[in-house]
Amino acid sequence: MVEPVTPANRRRDGLARPVFRALGRLGARLAGAIFVLWAVASITFFAVRLIPGDPAQAVLGGPGSQASPEALAAVSAEYGFDQPVFTQYLTQLGRLATGDLGRSYSLNMDVGPLVLDQLGGTLLLAVLALSLAWVIALALATWSTRGGLVAARVGSSLEIVAAALPHFWLATSLIVVFSIWIGVLPPISTDSLAGLVLPVLTLAVPLAGFLGQIMRESLLIALESPFVLSARARGESERGVRWVHALRHASLPAISLSGWAFGSLISGAVVVETIFARPGLGRTLLNAVTLRDVPVVIGVVMIVAVAYILMTLLTDAVSRLVDPRLRLS
């Protein structure tokens, strides 16, 4: 039977396609994200199984703790170490799905609240560093493409050196200069604004060097493209050419790299939080790795994976916002 064509279902036909396509894309994204999380959880679970020795021993403070067989058995039963590996795996997945990250061996508290508690500080650090890196990179790229050959040379050298700076050395050097010699900023990160300056700088400068290289390169390409010549032929000023046309094009590759950059900032936070004695995910992770506190490591890894995935989705959305061509295909 043929459905009569009414205005209503014609409208539905007209609208349905883009809406369905958008929903389909969202669904695919969500499925992809869940898959990645599942895989991350599985890899960490089985990787941790590879650790030699009895996990119950690890709970009780490692081989040096001389735990009694009874205590070991009790811990095994409590944590499910006596179950078959596959059962443990399913239990673990089930717990993760309900947001239960388990209990820390060393800190005697639940991992979920512990990790969430530390997340805020690290996120603040990463977001501030990412923003500062963008500002520095933009400034460096625009300046070095405008000021002639010398500026170009200086700009590109600065970027290469900045991108090669290891966080730990930059942090110590900044502490020596600003805390010890000049004495204007605290060497230990406090909650105050002054305490944030050095950690954020440490994270931002290498990233800025890297983003700056990419921006300068794409800015140069954009400035030489025919549409910029067209704009100039219309009487557009140098500033207009940059702000209306070129910078938008130049920012595209840097935007799509920001998801990756965010991930690298979180890994940089391991170093920075340790040096500046700042509470956060990175320091928690390092301590947990040193103490072999498996549940905490898994918890941090999961949280970072979630943050990373969300950030990639966000940069994707921003890319589509800035580059309408992406919305078409």
């Binding site: 991350v40 990787a47 490591v297 890894v301």
Partner: peptide
């Protein structure tokens, strides 16, 4: 890639 930067290295060191 969802184990950004040092994370994969730290996990490896945790195990070995």
């Amino acid at each position: 890639f969802a184990f950004p930067g040092l994370l994969l290295a730290l996990l490896f060191i945790l195990v070995f």
